[in-house]
Design a protein around this nucleic acid. Structure first.
Lengths: 219, 219
DNA sequence: CCCCTTGAAATTGGATCCATCTTCTGGGAA
DNA sequence: TTCCCAGAAGATGGATCCAATTTCAAGGGG
């Protein structure tokens, strides 16, 4: 068979750690011990080391030589610039993806948005929000672009969660409204409009997020 | 001592492979055998595996499970979008970096440009051109942004070299002129102008590069 | 003549053991 | 009391051996 029967251990370990980091189970700044992870996930230390490299490539952790790996702690300016990167890159991904979006893609996008509007749990909301945006970029056909966007989402995930906790559930209705505008522009195949709404969506979040100094470690 | 006495083997192997890939010694499409690299660089296979992960994170190679690693072959559209990503990201890096550039940075930038104008060998030219642009971004203070830019340069390096080989040495004078405009704008602390010149610089290269279908594999 | 199967060789992935580096703790001296 | 140094413990980095997967070639059947 041409399909691997069992997933590689390093990929499994990376998947587990990825979920734990994105869900905030592993908080920024805490060291990730190879042996602890190994015995907890039932693997040797070697695939754990490979997994840490994978997660480094995804922008989820940073590795310090002979020290270990941990989820990086970002200051306010860093998060702000990461959001400015999103403002510039994601519209490109959206415009490149839009012409190639098929009927099944649109169904999936609308379905995700309906789930977002119905969901209550914050963890699920964040995962669905992420899945929604990535779905709109999924047809761009450029792996490097999609990977870069994922890295930006990964690096900022912790602060997005902290912000949404602070902002409360009513903040989600802003998100939902802006998502609807994007879907509408995609429906009309209007790239200019889609780009405009997406930039506004990201920029608004950046501004509101940055306005909370208590989310960041720096003075 | 707080400084590591000897560099980690995986870092050394990664450095060697990185140079070989950027210089075109390892061409896109060819498989990179772990054992071959290991004995050639005097290390075990394990640090080679770590090195391949490092290079994957840098956008230089792609790893296929149970298959191996190789420098990816890009089609024309992929290279075009990568350049569009550069057009959007590098101006941000430049604007964020410019206010923090000190006197030593400016000296280094001017020195690099003088070297570029004097150099003859294509390999050195490409390395200096890369160093020049990265130097102008070096004060932005956002690791993630700089890393992303480096990945874009890495991924497109092969096609930049192939293009410059085709275009001939007189093409370099266009580069030098545009570099001078950027330096001038930085001197005046005019972010708008610097951004404008940089976008033009990248866009011109993209257009001329894309105009050579013989550089790409696709139909 | 072509295609499928089968087996061996080559290559990658994983486990265990050892070396090296970092860090923490305890003791001693100013 | 405080600072510094030495030594032990813990963690990461590396080497070797073994298992699983892929690839390629040879042989048989349609």
């Amino acid at each position: 068979m041409t399909q691997p029967t069992t997933e590689a251990a390093s990929v499994r370990v990376a998947a587990s750690l990825r979920t734990e980091i994105l869900d905030g189970v592993i908080e920024p700044g805490t060291w990730i011990r190879q042996e602890e992870v190994a015995e907890r996930l039932g693997a040797s230390r070697l695939p754990v080391r490979e997994a840490l490299r994978i997660l480094t490539a995804e922008g989820l952790i940073t590795v310090e030589p002979n020290r270990g790996a941990r989820v990086p702690v970002l200051d306010r300016r860093e998060v702000e610039v990461l959001y400015r990167m999103r403002e510039r890159l994601e519209p490109l991904a959206l415009v490149e993806s839009m012409p190639n979006l098929g009927a099944v893609d649109f169904d999936r996008i609308r379905d995700l948005q309906q789930q977002i509007e119905a969901i209550d749990d914050l963890r699920d909301f964040l995962a669905l929000d992420r899945a929604f945006h990535l779905a709109t970029y999924s047809a761009c056909g450029i792996d490097h672009l999609q990977d870069t966007v994922v890295r930006l989402w990964n690096a900022t995930q912790h602060y997005r969660r902290a912000f949404m906790e602070l902002a409360g559930p009513q903040r989600r209705w802003v998100v939902n409204a802006e998502h609807s505008l994007i879907i509408d522009a995609l429906d009309r195949q209007d790239g200019q409009d889609a780009e405009r709404y997406l930039v506004g969506h990201i920029r608004r979040t950046r501004r509101e997020l940055i306005a909370h100094p208590e989310l960041f470690s720096d003075a």
